[in-house]
Write a protein that binds this DNA or RNA. Structure first.
Lengths: 140, 140
DNA sequence: TGGGACCATATGGGCGTCAATGGGAGGAGG
DNA sequence: CCTCCTCCCATTGACGCCCATATGGTCCCA
């Protein structure tokens, strides 16, 4: 499997670390991704994580709209101002920073959610509710 | 027979496994399906299972709209975030995870229901009731 | 037509491996 | 000098892989 799929919830330890699910790590390996680019999702209280190509894709999207529009301004603020590079430790864990906690509401557990070409970090309950809402055709 | 038809109910063992009916396994074999894609049904409390082509069908749906639109985001949350890949063990059994239990209400027994190009997992009583309702032209 | 051998499926359980988690020590930076 | 982070090792619990047993049905032959 070369895509990020399904979801899993892991615990944050006393040092603020959390294990990335093994299936996601293997996808990162297949794609040769060593540096992780993280940014806030545009619609949901979640952090999106992918390789540097994720940043490229968002920049192309920004470039495709009127650069002086409020929309482009807003996207740039999130993509450039809110983006962070991270690395995994030897065991495949990442640090849950305040940047992540504040935006998602994550405190003790993290739900990893596959999104095909990237994955996301969610507060577990927020994910369940958003998914239930999505299934009914709503947003949240 | 190269399609999933009829239904059967099997027991979950102490380790949380359940045998997929032999007739379904032979269809999987004929179609060359080794990896199972599982997703929550959109209308019923059931898990749909098929080959990777099942995922392809949903992804084409997503691809038909602007990939950066909230609508695409919402569908991806369900299809990618809610979908799971599974494999059968050597005896043709699959693990009944909490993901499946929570959504379907399954606890000790699973009803396998053929749906032509895929099949579904149901809580036995829920299936009987849904089928009775469908027979009368209702939904649930 | 009845009995018995045979076979396939469903089910139960042992065991090894790996992932998730917890904690310690050393090093860099404030 | 103290704190935070990175690298390293230990533990444990879950899952995958393997083999064993039961149960029900079918086919063959007397």
């Amino acid at each position: 499997m070369n895509r990020f799929l399904s979801n899993a919830t892991n615990r944050i330890d006393a040092k603020g670390r959390v294990s990335v699910p093994a299936s996601f790590r293997s996808v990162l390996g297949e794609r040769g991704i060593r540096e992780l680019y993280c940014l806030q999702d545009f619609n949901y209280p979640a952090i999106s994580i992918g390789g540097p190509d994720l940043l490229d894709r968002y920049e192309r999207q920004i470039a495709s709209v009127d650069p002086f529009s409020p929309e482009a301004n807003r996207m740039s603020l999130l993509v450039h101002g809110g983006g962070v590079f991270m690395r995994l430790d030897a065991e495949g864990r990442l640090m849950v920073t305040d940047f992540i906690r504040d935006f998602t509401g994550i405190s003790t557990e993290v739900t990893f959610v596959g999104r095909s070409d990237h994955f996301q970090l969610w507060q577990p309950r927020a994910f369940q509710e958003a998914q239930a809402a999505a299934r009914e055709g709503r947003f949240g």
